[in-house]
């Protein structure tokens, strides 16, 4: 090839690209040969939750416990709220199920709702960076370090379970829990099934906080687990089952 000015510039460009590529492998390399352990095994598990709405009444203990520990901000603009678990009426929770002659009790009942940790999650399918992903134990996790804030997962989630940090959340956290991180402006967040507790063998905060024992948590793959016992003995439903997402949160109505 004749080395004229154009070719020289082209070669420089290629050379720079090559230099960049040599650095790329470092991104994924481990620095240590150390081992990493789990306090409690998550192998072969699939976590699930059964919420007995008959036992649930006007208290907000589950919401308060979760939001306090996880540093969920209290944003005054309702449309840009951040929430991990909250309560909705029957028609909001099960929009495809209700009818106009339901009992007054059911019309008034509030259902705690949270991320369904679906077995076939649309949010995971659409995320362009794997910032949201499904762990082997079925927990749908968010990697806030990686989220680019495109909100594709919010369009994908049919349950409205995801919140976007439209602004810096820190000024809206009243009592900071110093043992758990906050999130930052511009990322999506949601319930993590208390993954930080599951790995230590503890139950999620909402389950612990409920004085009525309305929320049961356990391993769906274990026939002896409390969730399987309830599912076998009670009439239970999931939210929007026709969408093929296979939610891991069940409700007794």
């Amino acid at each position: 090839m004749k080395m004229d000015r154009r070719n020289f510039i082209r070669m420089c460009g290629l050379g720079l690209l090559g230099l960049g590529a040599t650095k790329a492998d470092k991104i994924f390399a481990d620095v240590t040969k150390s081992k990493y352990l789990r306090t409690a095994s998550l192998q072969g598990k699939r976590w699930a939750m059964v919420i007995d709405s008959r036992k649930c009444n006007d208290c907000d203990d589950c919401v308060a416990a979760c939001h306090k520990v996880h540093n969920v901000p209290d944003i005054n603009k309702k449309e840009q709220e951040v929430k991990w678990i909250w309560k909705e009426g029957f028609h909001g929770t099960f929009p495809d199920l209700g009818h106009q002659y339901m009992t007054e009790k059911l019309e008034k009942r509030l259902f705690p709702i949270l991320c369904n940790h679906c077995d076939n999650p649309a949010c995971v399918r659409v995320c362009p960076t794997k910032a949201t992903f499904k762990r082997e134990d079925g927990v749908i996790m968010m990697d806030y370090h990686r989220c680019i804030g495109c909100r594709y997962c919010m369009a994908g989630c049919p349950y409205g379970a995801r919140s976007f940090n439209f602004q810096d959340p820190r000024p809206y956290i009243k009592n900071m829990n110093n043992e758990y991180p906050t999130r930052t402006k511009g990322v999506v967040e949601k319930c993590n099934f208390c993954a930080e507790l599951l790995v230590k063998g503890e139950l999620p905060l909402c389950v612990q906080a409920c004085k009525k024992g309305a929320i049961t948590f356990g391993d769906l793959n274990d026939p002896a687990s409390p969730v399987r016992k309830i599912l076998e003995n009670e009439a239970t439903i999931q939210r929007k089952p026709s969408l093929g997402t296979y939610p891991s949160v069940y409700y007794i109505v």
């Binding site: 620095v31 240590t32 150390s34 990493y36 352990l37 998550l42 762990r135 996790m141 370090h145 790995v199």
Partner: peptide, 25 residues
Amino acid sequence: SNHMELLNEWRIKSVREGTNVYVAS
């Protein structure tokens, strides 16, 4: 010299791989 890489690795191991304990050398 390596604390930043170590922290990156911790972040992957804890957030993405669900471990919580680091066994030092």
